[in-house]
């Protein structure tokens, strides 16, 4: 009961103090707002980059060519062996016989059709193939080497060189954007701690009086922490509005992609709500950390 009553008092005091120290609260709120806007933009950017790289990576295909003299049983064993490799996506092992490939190619172009029309089963120089997707793109070359060792496999191709470089580039872009977001959040925390320290400094007297009349450290800290969380929440309102209205507008204007339809943007729904929630939580947590670390200084005698 007593704890509840004191918690209620903390919340009431926190709200009161935001309005009583309005100009300082406004300073904290605008500081939080500005940094959270930057954090929001970098979160959106990094999510889009990683979404885009994941999409590209999903499309990466390894083509396995089977030797011409392989029997049907041997082809079946190759399939079984492929299934044993952990990096291979089990559901996406696609087999095409050379006959199917020939027919497909004939459909694609008249020239192919004319040339291939009189090939029969024995003349067909094409090879039976497996098309494979991998789970982890960065391990694609290792997987390719494993496949090469399988009996009766003649060739393994996945666009070596180009793909390896592309994957390496994506990985470093991802790392850079994650690093940037993290650094921004740290800077935000630091900025907010300093602004809140300013507001708390102006209430040094209040804290010392609270200590004099016998308030425990917990009682003193709680209203400040609640206030910090409240300031963080208030500071996240404008960034959230920008995300909720800005991102869909951007998405519509760009028709959902950047430069080419290859680079898709993430669809706004439910993405903007996820980002908004993240921003609100970051705001609250950062406000809480800021005020509790700022008030701690004044709790020593």
């Amino acid at each position: 009961m007593k704890i509840l009553r004191m918690l209620g008092r903390s919340i009431r005091d926190a709200f009161k103090s935001v309005f009583r120290n309005f100009s300082l609260s406004l300073a904290s709120i605008s500081c939080i707002t500005i940094t959270l806007i930057i954090v929001a933009i970098s979160i959106i950017a990094s999510y889009n980059v990683s979404n885009f790289t994941e999409e590209i990576e999903k499309d990466l295909t390894i083509v396995v060519f089977v030797e011409n003299d392989a029997t049907e049983e041997q082809i079946e064993t190759i399939k079984e062996r492929l299934k044993d490799i952990s990096n291979i996506n089990q559901k996406e092992i696609k087999y095409e016989s050379k006959k199917q490939i020939k027919e497909e190619m004939q459909k694609e172009s008249d020239i192919f059709n004319a040339v291939m029309a009189d090939w029969d089963e024995k003349d067909n120089p094409l090879k039976d193939t497996f098309q494979i997707k991998v789970n982890k793109a960065e391990e694609i070359s290792k997987t390719a080497k494993q496949i090469e060792k399988i009996e009766k496999v003649s060739l393994v191709r996945y666009g070596e060189g180009m793909v390896d470089k592309l994957i390496a580039a994506f990985e470093s872009i991802k790392k850079v954007t994650y690093g940037a977001v993290l650094a921004l959040i740290l800077v935000t925390i630091f900025l907010i701690i300093n602004t809140i320290k300013l507001t708390i400094y102006s209430r040094k007297r209040e804290i010392s009086i609270m200590r004099l009349v016998g308030a425990s450290n917990f009682t003193i800290k709680t209203p400040f922490i609640v206030e910090g969380m409240f300031l963080g929440l208030l500071g996240s309102i404008i960034p959230i509005l920008i995300v909720i209205f800005g991102y869909p507008a951007l998405y519509d204007k760009m028709n959902g992609y950047v430069f080419t339809p290859l680079v898709n943007l993430i669809h706004p729904n439910p993405f903007i709500y996820t980002v908004s929630l993240m921003i609100a939580i970051i705001g609250i947590i950062v406000g809480m950390i800021g005020s509790s670390s700022a008030v701690r200084k004044y709790l020593k005698v």
Binding site: R211, L212, V213, G214, S216, N217, T219, L299, V301
Partner: peptide, 9 residues
Amino acid sequence: NSKVYKLRR
């Protein structure tokens, strides 16, 4: 330090 409030009361 954290028990000072007991005295102050």
